[in-house]
């Protein structure tokens, strides 16, 4: 219980620090939102008036405090460039990026866990070398390139999907999911390769341990020993890795949303940074940080379920 409280406190602290740093960053980086909004030939008076209206003339800490108060109530202020509250603006986008991330994560788990284990099901040096080579190649190709390739092959040549024809999940969930399959796969591929590599090393390490010998001595076949004993032990280090992958899937989606014209959080983030639309950027940064913190917390909980030795009293 005390452990959980400590963990929770750490999560909160992380969130506060991240939001503060993001706030600070926009204070420091050059570029003024008013210049974007009013154009180059704005008068000094109109700039000053707008700055006052947006609250930009107030001291840094006062602004951060006000933002914090609002954020705690779910109010992230108004967007400078879109005439609507940030929360409303984000509401439509979060679902899209969340769906993209979810499909991608599902692909990672569903492909890499069985593959990693199957590759260890029998001692086959030839297959090992081949798998290694394929892994290296997949890891080296960046998702935006895979994405462009997929658009070309599956979109334009095979016509399995029409690039740019994205429909929002709130309109048609399954069509939306189907469209997101290829972008999700593009981000997932290098992470699948990494997870397979990681899991394989982990399974290898476990296979040499004494408890596996015990399992054999009781009449388990290699396959039975693998799935009854080795898998759960080997998955523990992989879970932390998967949590990291889940966290940086969102970063991957920023790029891939551009390639596949998916109007998600990533595209909004890029345009908002370009527009110096600070309230939007700030909110997205906080949401991403919250995601990372939650995923890591979830991984911790899962690992404690998997490995009793991690359950601290």
């Amino acid at each position: 219980m005390r452990y959980a409280a400590k963990k929770l406190a750490m999560m909160l602290l992380t969130m506060v620090i991240v939001s503060f740093l993001a706030f600070l960053a926009f204070q420091i980086i050059p570029g003024d939102p008013t210049a974007r909004l009013l154009g180059a030939d704005a008068t000094t008076e109109s700039v000053a008036a707008l700055r006052a209206e947006l609250g930009l003339d107030r001291p840094f800490f006062a602004r951060y405090g006000a933002w914090m108060q609002g954020a705690l109530r779910g109010d992230f202020g108004r967007s400078y460039s879109y005439a609507m509250p940030v929360s409303e603006l984000l509401a439509g986008k979060i679902g899209i990026t969340a769906l993209l991330t979810a499909v991608s994560f599902l692909l990672i788990v569903l492909v890499s866990l069985p593959t990693g284990v199957l590759l260890c099901a029998r001692e086959r040096p030839g297959l090992d070398r081949a798998a290694n080579a394929v892994n290296q190649i997949i890891m080296a190709v960046p998702p935006f390139f895979t994405g462009i390739l997929m658009t070309l092959v599956f979109g334009l040549m095979l016509r399995w999907f029409v690039p740019g024809s994205f429909v929002s999940p709130s309109e048609d969930f399954w069509r939306s999911t189907a469209y997101l399959f290829f972008p999700a796969l593009a981000i997932a591929l290098p992470r699948i390769a990494m997870t397979v590599k990681m899991l394989r090393a982990s399974v290898r390490g476990e296979l040499d341990k004494d408890y596996v010998r015990t399992a054999y001595s009781r009449g388990n076949s290699r396959w039975q020993a693998l799935y009854r004993h080795v898998l759960r032990n080997a998955v523990v280090p992989t879970v932390a890795f998967l949590a990291m992958a889940a966290a940086d899937l969102v970063a991957g989606s920023v790029v891939i949303e551009q390639v596949f014209s998916v109007p998600g959080l990533g595209r909004l983030l890029l345009t908002s940074i370009a527009n110096r639309d600070y309230p939007v950027v700030q909110a997205i940064v906080v949401i991403l940080a919250l995601w990372v913190v939650l995923v890591n917390g979830g991984a911790d909980l899962l690992n404690q379920r998997l490995d009793p030795r991690l359950r601290l009293s």
Binding site: K209, D210, Y211, S217, R218, G219, S221
Partner: peptide
């Protein structure tokens, strides 16, 4: 062999701690 292992012949090893599956 798999029929004999764990049925006709059983083994007790030197290190009981490492010989057991830690997560089961």
């Amino acid at each position: 062999i798999h029929q004999v292992q764990g049925k006709d012949i059983c083994v007790v090893f030197q290190e009981p701690m490492s010989a057991m599956d830690p997560v089961m």
